[in-house]
């Protein structure tokens, strides 16, 4: 990994964030961002047959940075960050592809495949999703977070409920409504 992040760094940042340091969260996201990118690019080089979904990316980032011996509280916090970082990676990649006329550089292809995304149509859609989610987050942090955790972080409903400290029923209802809303936003 080219990023000089160590387990220790990450754990320290997680601690700091948990004790209320908002900058620590940003720092974490940046760390994880670099990792998710590298993982996406690397995984395809290593294993041409396999596909990583957004959630696989987040999980792998977690394991690479923190190992598997992580308590649930740390995990939960980390997934907040990983989901956000994964989203950024995918959105940035999509944006880059859309702005660049010429194609064919290696990393591009790998990111495409790693995310299971391959057309500029879906790039545009992904940007739309991102924007819609940002709009939603402006007024409805919880529902936007639910979407992010489920779709970009790969958490189960149970895990999301624990992460946000709400009931499973709430997660279901939030997810369903937010998803319908996103769909209308995309169709608009």
């Amino acid at each position: 990994m080219n990023e000089p992040s160590t387990d220790h760094d990450i754990t320290r940042l997680l601690d700091a964030w948990r004790s209320g340091d908002a900058q620590a969260r940003e720092a974490l996201v940046q760390r994880v961002y670099a990792n998710v990118r590298a993982i996406a690019a690397q995984s395809l080089r290593q294993m041409p047959g396999a596909t990583l979904s957004a959630t696989d990316l987040a999980h792998e980032a977690l394991l690479r940075l923190l190992g598997s011996e992580l308590d649930w509280a740390d995990r939960r916090h980390f997934f907040h960050v990983a989901a956000q970082a994964t989203r950024q990676v995918l959105v940035d990649a999509a944006r880059k592809r859309l702005t660049e006329k010429r194609g064919g550089d290696v990393e591009r292809v790998q990111l495409d495949q790693a995310a299971g995304v391959s057309t500029s149509d879906s790039d545009a859609q992904l940007l739309q999703v991102d924007e819609a989610l940002r709009d939603l987050a402006a007024t409805d942090v919880r529902r936007a977070r639910v979407i992010e955790l489920v779709y970009f972080g790969g958490l189960s409903r149970l895990e999301v409920a624990a992460a946000l400290d709400v009931s499973e029923g709430t997660v279901d209802r939030d997810l369903r409504l937010a998803r319908a809303w996103l769909r209308t936003a995309l169709e608009a």
Binding site: L90, A115, V117, V150, F152, G154, R176, R179, L182, L186
Partner: peptide, 17 residues
């Protein structure tokens, strides 16, 4: 589910959906 399609997550990750 357009999100699932975009992000490679199973279509029925929502309970009840």
């Amino acid at each position: 589910d357009p999100l699932a399609r975009l992000l490679g997550r199973g279509a029925a990750s929502l309970a009840g959906a």
